[in-house]
Amino acid sequence: MDHRLTPRTLTWDEVDPGRHPFDAVSAHEVVRGLAPASAVPARPAGQAGQRRVIAWSHEVGAAWADSMTRALIERYGRWAAGWRWAVDEGDFGGGPVQTWCCPNHSITGADETVARVADSLVEWRGWLDDLAERFERFPLGDPVDRDEVWERAAVHLVHHVVDRTGAGDAWYGHCAQVLTWFLARWGVADGVAGHLVDQAIGGRFESWVGPAETLVTDVAERFARAAEDAFAAPDRD
């Protein structure tokens, strides 16, 4: 798949609402005006789990959804690629979007499908707005207290992602991304931030399992120590 279509690789610079204006009120009209909106493919009759419907979803439906993602990116920027990052086993899996699942479930009538795309885009943007607001709750003040701020932020954000995703399939991927975005917001380079988060989590989060509080605490403590070291490094940028 085209790298630009994959929300898992989105950076904070690409999704930061402060850098990318968006008008939710006009989103439905904008989406209806995009070229793919006039070419919604007809879904075959049958249940979403039937083999022929799944085959159509992987071939025809996915190609149309990709074309819609390209059109949305062209209009709004790459942050829009997250519109179909569904919870559980959706198009990408493990995301925060509940309005869209996947072509075999979410492509229905043409008008309804286009409206669902717009609703999903608005939902995704709302999640980004929410994260940006939460990041600001943990500003870096006195260096003496900074490690405590990192730790409290990590606990808060892990719980928030768990609540949003239901700790379903592959939820931990987006959780790691959110923690990486948080570090990036406060000046840690993306590559360094991702490495620090991977070290803190250590592969201990699992699909379909909400993390025990002791695990969240341990991850947060590791995250705080690593983040403080990275933030204090003179070449962090």
Rank of each mutant, 00 (worst) to 15 (best):
A39D: 14
P234S: 08
V192Q: 14
A193V: 03
H105N: 09
A167S: 14
A184P: 00
R164D: 12
T9N: 14
P17M: 04
H160N: 07
R236G: 08
V114D: 15
A232T: 12
A65L: 12
D145S: 09
A24Q: 08
D88H: 09
R32E: 12
V158G: 03
D145K: 02
I201W: 11
P17R: 03
A39L: 05
R84E: 08
G18D: 15
D235H: 06
A167Y: 02
D66H: 10
L131V: 00
A55H: 12
A227G: 13
W83T: 01
V114T: 08
V60F: 00
A132C: 04
V162P: 01
W127S: 05
R225G: 15
Q199D: 15
F223C: 09
Q47A: 14
V60C: 02
E123P: 01
R152M: 11
D147S: 14
Q47G: 13
D237N: 09
L179T: 02
L128E: 07
L131W: 14
V87H: 08
A189H: 13
P44Q: 06
A212N: 12
D129G: 08
E148L: 09
R75S: 12
D66C: 02
V31H: 10
A167I: 00
D145E: 15
H174N: 08
I201G: 10
R43K: 13
W208A: 11
A212H: 12
P96T: 10
L34P: 04
V155S: 10
T214Y: 08
P41W: 02
A62R: 13
R52S: 15
E221L: 05
P103L: 06
W127E: 13
G191P: 01
D119A: 10
T11S: 15
A27V: 05
R146E: 15
G191A: 13
A48D: 11
L131K: 03
L34G: 07
E221G: 04
V15F: 05
D16Y: 00
V158P: 01
D66K: 07
D2M: 01
Q47T: 03
A153S: 15
L121V: 03
W85G: 03
D190E: 15
P234R: 02
R164P: 00
A63W: 00
E74Y: 00
D23I: 00
W150Y: 14
R8G: 05
D91Q: 15
L140E: 14
R185I: 00
G202D: 12
W127H: 12
V192Y: 04
E74D: 14
C101N: 05
D190A: 10
H160D: 13
G173F: 10
W83I: 00
C175S: 11
L72M: 14
L128Q: 09
W12S: 04
G18P: 07
Q47K: 10
F138A: 06
A45L: 10
I54R: 15
V158D: 06
G93P: 05
R236Y: 07
T9V: 10
R222F: 09
A24L: 01
A167D: 05
R32I: 00
E206Q: 12
A37F: 02
T9M: 02
D2E: 14
D88G: 02
E112K: 04
E221C: 01
L34S: 07
G46I: 02
L179W: 06
G46M: 08
Q47N: 06
G173Q: 13
V117S: 07
A37M: 08
A35C: 03
I201H: 12
L72Q: 06
A86T: 08
L5G: 05
